[in-house]
Structures are given as structure tokens and as C-alpha cells.
Nucleic acid binder design. Structure first.
Lengths: 213, 213
DNA sequence: TAGATTGTTAATCGATTAACAATC
DNA sequence: TAGATTGTTAATCGATTAACAATC
């Protein structure tokens, strides 16, 4: 039984590990595992048992002394913490190769989101069906936001356009950005969150390590 | 002038910041900026001047007291450290939506790589042209590796297949994996490096923060 | 009950920041 | 030369690990 929710003060090191816990617990659940100790999970995830117990206790006491953790319960708890039971409406901005791949590849529904609109500035793409949705003109974006109230935007646009479009989307009520452009987006409202994904940077760290081992 | 190369003992916190330094310096260079102090760069990148000087000094003394850093020189030095001047031959395994988007979206050449082959197990895709390259059968993979010696593999395949294919690729001489599958790949040879990209996890951390602010 | 394993406090380790002497 | 800014050492901060009393 969760003793307390201490969230808000959770360090980003912990937050970044949560989805991985959720994934591993999901796998255990799928395998039919009923209980797991921090020691067993640590072995599986290549972490320390100590770290796992520390991390989980940021959110409450989900285990039981002498027993460990019930896999199904813990999976559900972490899911709730992450917010997979929510349905945050999201829109895609920029429907090029990457944008299309992201929205067809990612299962939004299992991650607390629902894709409700796709926008692109290229007239050539207008009306195209992507994921069963018609690509819409950027001109209709504000009107769409007023009526449909999306809260998350997935940005797959060139870096030069990113800040301007993001500022515009903030005015339209967007509260979270999943940014794939080669640009470090930051918004200085405190109730708006940004997750930058830099695929180019990721490849470069691999290049570095490949050449320095 | 670099005093010493202390690499090998570089912490991963520092390594992960290197591509970002490279990007920001590239921008400054494009703008025609000649010199930059750690203080100015810190302001631009939202870091501390101290951290920048510490990071750079892991690799050598690139600055000059009283002056700062020469933008062009520092950009080139960091490029060399990252290995952008190398040409690591790479192959794509799995040419679905995501695989196609990655290889058409990422500029490999500016990141020390060259894509030399694309493979997929689906017969339907065989012979398709992607990025000016024909999709090849997985059956020809080993033979291809023997003759062309790729060193990096980009994995855009289902999680169930990942470990097996990665093990096979290790035997074929692959030294680095850029893994996009929903699977935590780890290879326990010490001369093989893995960069896992978990887009699903990335979205989940955004969902968490969106619901906890 | 005895054994096992948690929740939590204390110790350690590493990364970031501050300070300042070296020096361009 | 004087001013500026680095390279580097020392101080601080935060995250990870270890230890153990609480307890199922």
C-alpha cells in the first residue's frame, strides 16, 4: 500500500528510469511471474537492489517485507505514476519521413496519449491519409486547437521553424512538447514540459565510443 | 594546443554533452563568430562556465587565457574527438517505417558514418530502393559482411528478434549497435558498444512530467 | 516462530560548482 | 602592463550503494 506520494520533488534520474521499470515489469507479467524481489529485478535490469528500493520508495511502499513485490500490482502502480491511464490528446506537427514513422511506430494509447491531428505546411501532403487521419494545413491549426484542445505536440519540423511554431502552440494551449528537430527547444513557462530527442547526438556518442574503445 | 588526451577515462556524462557542444559551436561558426568565452557559451547552452571548462579539459587545453576559445578551432577539435572525420561503414537491419525514416532523416556522413547496406527479412521489400540503395535479403547478410566489413549496425527490428540478430552480427564483425528496438540490448564483449534509443520510454517520461506539473 | 526482504538511514562515490593562481 | 579568462584544485552537492532495524 502506497504510504505517500512525494512526487514533485522526484529527481530526473529517477524519472528516466521509471519507463524501464514499467517495461521490465510488463515482461515479467507477460511471463506470468507473480512476485519479484528487488534482488531478482536488479539482476534482470542490471541495477542494484538498493537503487530499485530507493527509486520505488520515492512514490510509496509498494513491497512487503519478507515477500518482495507483487508484479501485477507494482506494474499497475508504476503505470499510474507514469500516467498511462490518462488520455492526453496529441498532435503531430510535420509529417515528413520522420513524423510519419514516429506516429505509425509508437503506440500512443499504451503511453497515456491519443493522436488526434496531423499537420504539415506542405500543400503536397494536404489530405493525405496517415494512420487513418488526413494531413491538415498549418493554417487550420489554431482553429483546431480551440475546438479539440490538444495538450501535447510532437514536433518533426526543421530546426529553423521550431521555436516559432512552439511559441505559437503554447498560445494554443499545448502543455508538452516531444521535440525531434535538431534544435534544443526550451520554453520558460513553468507549467510546460519539453522532451528533446536528438537522434543525431545519439549517433555521435556511438561514433565517439566506437572510435575510443 | 591540446596538452594531453586523457580519453578512455571520460565519464559518460561528459561524452553525452560532446555532441551538443559540437552543435552549438557549429551554429556559432555558421554565424561567423570568431571567439567565445566559456561564460558566453555557458549562457547560450544553459550550462555553467565551470562545467564547460572542466568538460573541455578532459581532452586538452583548447583555450587561451584572457581570450577564450577560437570557435573554428574548438569546433574542429571536438569533431575530431567525436570522430566525425572517420568513415565507419554502417548497415540498416529492418527497413520498416522507422528504419526508412532514420536512414533518410539522419545525415550519416557528417557524423563519421556511411550507410553501405540495407537489409530486411520481408520478401515484399526485397529490391526496393531506399536512399538509392536496394533492400537486400537477410540471407545475404553474412556474405555481405565478409566482403564489405561494416562496423556499425542500425537495428530497427522487433524486440523478439533483436538479441539473436545482434549476436549474429557480432560474429560478422559489427562493433557498434544503434538499437531502436523496444529491447535493452547489451553485448558483453568489451570492445563492442551499444546505444539504445527508446522512443517509447522517452514519450513516457514526457507523459509523466505532463501529468505531474 | 524463523527467514526473508523491505523501507530507510548512513556512508560512499561521482559529478557539478566555486575559487583562484597561472598566463595570455 | 593591466585585464580577462583559462586550467586546475578544492568545496559542494546530489545520486548511488551499503547496512540494518522494522516487519511481513
Amino acid at each position: 500500500m502506497p504510504k505517500s506520494d512525494k512526487s514533485g520533488s522526484i529527481s530526473s534520474s529517477v524519472i528516466k528510469r521509471l519507463p524501464r521499470y514499467y517495461r521490465f515489469l510488463g515482461e515479467l507479467l507477460a511471463k506470468g511471474t507473480v512476485r519479484v524481489s528487488s534482488q531478482e529485478l536488479a539482476l534482470d535490469m542490471k541495477l542494484t537492489a538498493s537503487q530499485i528500493r530507493q527509486d520505488l520508495n520515492c512514490f510509496g511502499g509498494f513491497g512487503q517485507q519478507g515477500y518482495g513485490y507483487n508484479v501485477a500490482d507494482l506494474h499497475e502502480e508504476i503505470g499510474r505514476i507514469l500516467g498511462v491511464d490518462k488520455v492526453t490528446p496529441a498532435i503531430l506537427i510535420g509529417c515528413g519521413n520522420l513524423g510519419r514513422a514516429i506516429v505509425t511506430h509508437i503506440n500512443f494509447e499504451t503511453r497515456g496519449c491519443r493522436l488526434i491531428g496531423i499537420f504539415d505546411e506542405s500543400p503536397a501532403l494536404l489530405g493525405w491519409q496517415v494512420n487513418g487521419m488526413a494531413v491538415q494545413s498549418m493554417d487550420t491549426l489554431e482553429q483546431f486547437c480551440r475546438s479539440e484542445n490538444p495538450e501535447m505536440a510532437i514536433l518533426c519540423i526543421p530546426k529553423t521553424a521550431t521555436q516559432e511554431i512552439a511559441d505559437k502552440l503554447v498560445k494554443c494551449g499545448i502543455k508538452g512538447f516531444w521535440n525531434f528537430s535538431h534544435y534544443d527547444l526550451s520554453i520558460d513557462h513553468d507549467n510546460i514540459v519539453v522532451e528533446n530527442v536528438h537522434l543525431g547526438d545519439s549517433l555521435l556518442t556511438l561514433t565517439y565510443r566506437l572510435n575510443n574503445h
